[in-house]
Write a protein that binds this DNA or RNA. Sequence first.
DNA 1: GTCTATATTTGGATAGAC
DNA 2: GTCTATCCAAATATAGAC
Lengths: 189, 189
Amino acid sequence: MPAPLATRTEVLDRIMESFRKDGYDGASLETISKRVGLGKSSLYHHFPGGKEEMAHAVLAHLNEGLRETFDVVKAEPHPKKKLDLILDAIDALYEGGKKACLLARLGASVDRIRFGAPLKATFSGLMSVLADICRAAGLTAPIARHRAEQAIVRIEGALVVSAAMGDPGVFARTLAELRTTLLLPDRGR
Amino acid sequence: MPAPLATRTEVLDRIMESFRKDGYDGASLETISKRVGLGKSSLYHHFPGGKEEMAHAVLAHLNEGLRETFDVVKAEPHPKKKLDLILDAIDALYEGGKKACLLARLGASVDRIRFGAPLKATFSGLMSVLADICRAAGLTAPIARHRAEQAIVRIEGALVVSAAMGDPGVFARTLAELRTTLLLPDRGR
DNA sequence: GTCTATATTTGGATAGAC
DNA sequence: GTCTATCCAAATATAGAC
């Protein structure tokens, strides 16, 4: 609440923190207002559509941040370094497993609020970037897609389990294993 | 609202459905009341502590159901059959990935409501059962623990991603892969 | 044990001054 | 652009009849 100058990015970052921590339904305008450091009316000035518009704006904001990361990754030629870059970004985003995933939290309200499309888009984007890396490492397209899907599954699951167990180590171990195994050649079965 | 006789188990099952679908904050007494088929006052008669007590009761109810499954699993001697039994139960519980995980949903409110202990207990229980199966299949204790942890990570993650993508196939593929790989001998690295 | 009715609080949203 | 004050609806919870 201190910062007197709140740029739009800062505002969005803080609203994002509210939704991440409490979920869409658990985050009230009251608590968001306090966290952002702006009164409710000021929030409505920036987001006339209220809480729902805030959530959509936050999702778009997250997507923008991810796109920047993706651009950096694409500029890197080595597959393993690509992977490390993206997992570093994910590790930082969730602060080593101490913070929840916005997408998972908003997903809980997907039946009542219209988050379906942006949520799906974000996951799809992440998935195709990971699949690209897998293919660059020499894996076939179907295997690459499957690996990418399971990587995201494991990242999301690790965040859920880390939070429930109060143990960020779960997340750390999961990321570490992805780093060493995601690009390994396929061994068939 | 049909069932005129609502045994406590039925009531708990329906409340559980409410929390699974909408999360703790998203489930209102109004919607719970409708789903259960009892008026709000009747709910308070059964759960004087209100919504929070309902959630705790539902968690205890889930634990009881899991314990019964665990007992059946323990009676089965073959590791692979043990695994299949437990994954069948999980598949049924989440209806092939179409239903969300109560634990993940309640985890979103863990900072405001006191779910930490029961949540952790449930995950720990599931984890130790899976680890037992892995050890019975010949894996060492540390490997078994790690495999069990990652199995739960993947199950939870698959539920999150399936819901967000609107594709239960993610869950199905994840379970299928766990069936064929969880008990495989360790290959070192 | 369940209901109707009501109290109380909180949450989302707006009006209008500065 | 931000604030204070306020409105209205919804949510939690209780009282008391049956």
